[in-house]
Design a protein around this nucleic acid. Structure first.
Length: 427
DNA sequence: TCTGGGGTCCTAGGACCC
DNA sequence: TCTGGGGTCCTAGGACCC
């Protein structure tokens, strides 16, 4: 058996922790750049605020209904997330928790005796809520896919289920699957949902479950589809992931606060993103051998409602893996030089690192200069300073001073739990 | 005026080799 | 005149997730 624990309206719940007046009131959190809506409380959903909806289109609705809006505050959410996960580990044990996303974790229940299952799940929920103040929903079932089905039903019927649904028997599973539209199955996105409905008249998860593996291989993305089908049928084939696994790819990409036209500004942005990506790289003790840079532009003549963009990528393979910010910036700027076309309206840029290797096993080559140790010491010092003091206390000059392109975040709450000067005040 | 960011996995198809 | 088959590796791109 697996359980999935999912925080209810996670970002909004984090904001409410430090603004208790907002309980039972509509709240929403915006994406970076205050672009669109990425978290909503039930009250905000009831008013008609859509997930992923562009903020500017909903301004009026928001004002009319007194919905409280926050810019995203990832320092805060990241810290609260860590507390939630620690709490879950305290109940289930370190090795039984797989952090799946910032607000979700799978729990392996294989060692929980059947008789104790329901009290154990109850404990997961209650302790998390008591220790962190964040409400969660729990779904439990024989496979991960089915536990997601259960979790969705728990969230859909909060009062009736007390946010807990466990699927133990075949009857319960069948009933749950019949109440789950195909598009809401974990692993079925928009495209597949459309195909399933249009071409196979499959509307819900139960109908999908009646299909066979050959059909799934052909119509549902090959082995992925086969796996999904098996999971629906109760055969577990998506294991718990090793928590120590490193990321295979690291990306730092951002929309600009306002359009950028000139190369120097573009270079500042890319240098900044590269610094950030390099930090993430060093945090997992890795070096990269592959750097990809992209820029995204929007045509000057664009009608309202039209959201067409163009992006161009360029990449390079490094002769020797590196995690040195300065060196990475140098490569990234060369790529930007080649990508840049004057006269375009750039709205976004980014850097993607892959082909990551552990930094203690870098394969040197005959032509590489022998400065690695010094660079490593420097990077270490840089990371330590930037971690303990405010962000970017020390940074490379090429990341810019004015930073006109920086994103907008007009409604961000304080970083109550991670910055001394922003601690929550009680009078 | 204004539409996020960061990941994973898989497949198809091309290049290359023997 | 005539021009195979099987394998590997790599990359781009699609689909999905939160």
């Amino acid at each position: 058996m697996y359980a999935i624990v999912d925080c209810n309206s996670f970002y909004c719940s984090c904001e409410r922790l430090f603004a208790p007046a907002l309980y039972n009131r509509p709240v929403a959190v915006l994406s970076n750049n205050d672009g669109c809506i990425i978290s909503r409380t039930d009250e905000a959903k009831a008013i008609g605020l859509g997930m992923g909806a562009p903020y500017f289109q909903y301004r009026q609705l928001i004002e009319q209904n007194g919905i409280t809006i926050f810019s995203s505050n990832y320092h805060l959410y990241g810290d609260i997330s860590r507390r939630v996960m620690d709490t879950l580990r305290s109940v289930a044990g370190n090795n039984m928790v797989e952090v799946y996303s910032v607000d979700e974790a799978f729990i392996n229940l294989k060692e929980v005796p059947e008789k104790k299952l329901s009290s154990f799940i109850q404990e997961l929920k209650e302790r998390t809520e008591q220790w962190t103040g964040i409400q969660v929903s729990v779904g439990a079932a024989p496979t991960k896919v089915l536990s997601k089905v259960a979790n969705r039903l728990a969230k859909k019927n909060k009062i009736a289920t007390n946010c807990i649904v466990a699927l133990n028997t075949e009857e319960e599973i069948q009933d749950a699957l019949q109440r789950t539209p195909v598009g809401d199955i974990w692993g079925i996105g928009r495209k597949y949902a459309y195909t399933l409905k249009e071409f196979f008249a499959i509307e819900n998860a139960w109908q999908l479950r009646q299909m066979n593996e050959e059909w799934a291989r052909k119509n549902l993305g090959g082995v992925i589809g086969v796996r999904l089908l098996k999971e629906l049928k109760g055969f577990s084939c998506v294991d718990m992931k090793d928590p120590l696994e490193n990321k295979k790819m690291i990306a730092t990409t951002r929309m600009f606060g306002k359009p950028v036209y000139e190369l120097p500004e573009l270079k500042e942005a890319i240098a900044t993103y590269t610094s950030r990506a390099a930090e993430k790289l060093r945090r997992q003790y890795c070096a990269t051998k592959y750097i990809d840079v992209f820029i995204m532009s929007r045509p000057h003549t664009q009608k309202p409602g039209d959201y067409y963009t163009e992006s161009r990528h360029l990449h390079c393979h490094l002769p020797v893996a590196t995690s040195d910010t300065q060196q990475m910036i140098r490569y990234a700027k060369q790529l930007i030089d080649q990508l840049y076309r004057p006269g375009l309206k750039y709205i976004k840029a980014g850097i993607i690192l892959s082909d990551l290797v552990p930094d203690n096993s870098i394969q040197g080559n005959l032509f590489s200069p022998f400065t690695e140790t010094r660079q490593k010491v420097l990077m270490n010092a840089l990371d330590n300073i930037n971690f303990s003091m405010r962000d970017d206390a020390v940074r490379y000059a090429s990341t810019g001073v004015k930073r006109n392109w920086k994103m907008r975040q007009e409604k961000r709450s304080k970083r109550y739990t991670t910055r001394w000067e922003e601690l929550f005040e009680v009078r």
